[in-house]
Design a protein around this nucleic acid. Structure first.
Lengths: 244, 244
DNA sequence: TCCATCAAAGTGGTTTGACCAAAAATTTAT
DNA sequence: ATAAATTTTTGGTCAAACCACTTTGATGGA
């Protein structure tokens, strides 16, 4: 019965102690009214001040409850206007990634995505960004020469991230960020990176220089080819490791 | 091929429209740190009072941001103890928070990603999947003939999703799913889709047939070209709408 | 009468500062 | 060394303001 629509951390059905957090109780009550159809889509809820009085809590608590509802997709908060019911059947499909992609899948996706991104970036990158890119490259070179490959890799990441940002496409940028984060959160990928770090001095300087060169020349096709060749090379190292 | 002429009303990460709601800005910053891996799972965030000082906002605002993150499933708030990071590398979170990519950004990303995906799929798709694809296509045709364009579009989505799945690359698949989910969660994109639905009968059957044909022939280059031409056409319709 | 304009009221957004209860860290007593 | 008592830290809640924006409605001229 106690549906506890939001954040049902509770496995216990009828916990004598309801959620200790008041704003979640309020959020649940409102969510139940919405799901029960008492509050129909399009309707405006009472003002925060009224809800506070109605449930005998502070306005602040009501606000927190409403924010929870908004993030859940149940209501739409319109500043200066009010809070409006959006939907009653909340059956949106979760887009959660259950089975994390493997290292090779990540690299294949990077090959395609970052290749395209490099081509786009070549046409859209600003001179300031090119300077920043060059700076990253120099840091990378310096750190590699000092055998500090681990630190050099952080600039490797920044280098690629900056190119993603230069595409002026936040969707592309988000996806590339995600792929890198995946790599860092994957044990297997980390293991590969570790092994490779022992074998080679650090990030491939020449490959990055070539990418930078193509970008500075606004050579989209060249940048794409250079980026894909770079990533393919790293992937190759992965494959060799697996072969062992 | 790379139709980079897509004008970019791009809202880059650098200069996002400062959402008037401060707590969403804070939530976004924290979410980005989590997704970027700066805040790793299990880590405890600074105390609310510290975060408030760090971001130069009130503690109340920080609380609201944290509640949004909790409902999003990124953090776990433990009263009396602290706020802990739950997961990272979750593309979903980018939808819940602001800074959602615009319609044209989404389409540009789809052009690149789904183009590559079609090429990969041409080489890897199974006969069973081809049959399923054909079935989707037939349903689409039938629904379009009955003027039920809205329903036809659901099979449009399934069609593209199946191709993404046929790449055998879960990273690619997740990203394409994410792009579609973005489109559906974006008011502006929905508006566009609605307007287009009134103008045209429904999904472009010929374009989908051509894609299917190339896939069945295992023609990677052809599939990529067909897919990109298809998406470019839809994008073109968007651009025309903006022109009005 | 109509309607553009502007003032007032309503609404969410944010700040400040205070107090509480529970968890965690520290000290004290055994 | 262990257990108990105490202090500190942390999130949870309340309160009273003020702000910016939206909505409403009254006003006044055409």
């Amino acid at each position: 019965m106690n549906d506890n629509t939001l954040l049902s951390l509770a496995s216990s059905r009828q916990a004598p102690v309801p959620n200790s957090r008041l704003y979640l109780q309020i959020a649940d009550k409102l969510a139940q009214q919405i799901n029960a159809g008492e509050l129909k889509p399009g309707m405006r809820l009472p003002a925060e001040r009224d809800l506070a009085q109605q449930y005998d809590v502070s306005r602040q608590t009501v606000r927190e409850a409403l924010i929870a509802l908004e993030v859940s997709g149940l209501v739409d908060i319109r500043p200066g206007s009010g809070v409006y019911v959006l939907q009653e059947a909340n059956l949106k499909s979760s887009i959660l990634v259950e089975n994390a992609p493997g290292p090779l899948e990540i690299m294949e996706a990077r090959l395609l995505l970052e290749g395209d991104a490099a081509a786009l970036a070549a046409e859209r990158i600003s001179n300031e960004e090119l300077l920043k890119l060059k700076a990253y490259l120099n840091q990378m070179i310096s750190l590699v020469q000092q055998q500090r490959s681990a630190e050099a890799e952080t600039f490797d990441g920044k280098f690629h991230q900056l190119i993603a940002s230069a595409t002026r496409n936040s969707a592309l940028q988000s996806m590339i960020e995600w792929l890198w984060a995946l790599r860092e959160s994957s044990e297997l990928s980390q293991l590969f990176a570790e092994k490779i770090r022992r074998q080679v001095a650090g990030p491939n300087i020449e490959a990055h220089e070539k990418i930078y060169l193509c970008l500075s020349r606004r050579d989209a096709a060249g940048a794409k080819a250079a980026m894909q060749s770079h990533i393919a090379q790293v992937t190759e190292a992965y494959v060799l490791l697996i072969g062992e």
